[in-house]
């Protein structure tokens, strides 16, 4: 499995503690890039700017990625543009929230 895929897999373990849904299914992960030296660059967002879980979730993303053996540096960039929308959620996340 490529490192990018391993990273995505690892991010399923990062759960939003308010909603009880992982951040991948919530559609918070915009982009995962891995360079030649296996440094990982993640671009992500949160459901709303000013989310009190800001530091916890970003820190959780870094921790989950560092658990992968081959990974070099980890750089998580939190962005508000493009803004998160409900359409970015997986069907499973939608069902959990709206069911």
């Amino acid at each position: 499995m490529s490192i990018a895929n391993q990273v995505k897999e690892a991010l399923y373990s990062v759960i939003d503690p308010e909603l009880g849904i992982n951040i991948v299914d919530l559609g918070l992960i915009y982009d995962i890039e891995v360079n030649k030296t296996n440094d990982v660059f993640v671009t992500m967002t949160l459901t709303t700017p000013g989310c009190p879980l800001h530091d916890s979730i970003v820190g959780g993303v870094e921790s989950a990625i560092y658990y992968i053996n081959e990974v070099g540096k980890v750089d998580v960039q939190l962005v508000w543009q493009p803004a998160w929308t409900p359409e970015k959620m997986s069907d499973q996340a939608k069902a959990m929230l709206m069911g």
């Binding site: 990062v14 503690p17 820190g59 658990y67």
Partner: peptide, 13 residues
């Protein structure tokens, strides 16, 4: 629990 996010199971709020 904040520091444990991504490392193991943490309770929900």
């Amino acid at each position: 629990y904040s520091a444990q996010v991504g490392k193991g199971n943490v309770p929900l709020l």
